[in-house]
Design a protein around this nucleic acid. Structure first.
Lengths: 122, 122
DNA sequence: CGGGATCCTTGAAGATACTG
DNA sequence: CAGTATCTTCAAGGATCCCG
């Protein structure tokens, strides 16, 4: 579309795109649970907790589209659908969990900063 | 505190919270540019490109609140405001850039998966 | 059981105008 | 220059009903 602005900016937008995908409300939770192994729809819904079936469907479709998850349908009655991380999904898990580790160890510092900021603002 | 699988959900929500903060539309871009050093408002606005002044203000306020950037006002005319990463901000930069590196090296696989998925769906 | 199709409510984000 | 103040748009997310 437009002339190549800066490669810097371009790269960052790719990063932002991945981060938006991963950073949405439910994706990390779902991916993390699937990191333990294959799960079916309702199982996942119970595990995550608080997610609507619509959002779980949307989240899983997005993950499937991006190649992070496989969807396997068993044409039985009642139907059964299994979700599982792909290789790409498992590879993604590593840097995400690194960020997760950072978040866990530093969440208290963030919360402290927030309280300080909010207090100064009255 | 508890068995590892018991703090699972709790931790993930903390992770999700950080990821939502970091994964919003502009935060990563802004943090990344600030990773190069202190910058002032308009300078940052030009660098990021496409961001409205409102969103830049909102993004910077959020980062300041969470303790990731400092805001320094010079009471001159015209006014001058510098933004700079804090230690916490620079520490965050590491795992974020790790995820960024993953995104850059794998974005093509993601895009390929998307094309495949979209084609199958017609 | 695993969704699809709708409707509805928010809040995020953009555009524009004004100001110390 | 570095914001604030409004107004508007738009899509994420939730609630509900239906169906093979």
């Amino acid at each position: 579309m437009k002339p190549t602005h800066m490669r810097h900016s371009e790269d960052c937008r790719a990063v932002s795109e991945i981060l938006s995908r991963v950073g949405d409300k439910w994706t990390v939770l779902v991916v993390d649970y699937l990191g333990q192994g294959s799960m079916r729809f309702t199982e996942l819904k119970r595990a995550v907790g608080g997610i609507s079936q619509k959002m779980l469907t949307t989240t899983l479709r997005g993950l499937e589209r991006d190649g992070f998850v496989t969807r396997t349908v068993f044409p039985t009655i009642p139907p059964r659908v299994d979700y599982e991380l792909t290789d790409l999904g498992r590879e993604l898990l590593a840097p995400v969990q690194a960020l997760g580790a950072w978040a866990r160890t530093n969440i208290s510092r963030v919360n402290a900063a927030r309280e300080r900021f909010d207090k100064e603002q009255q």
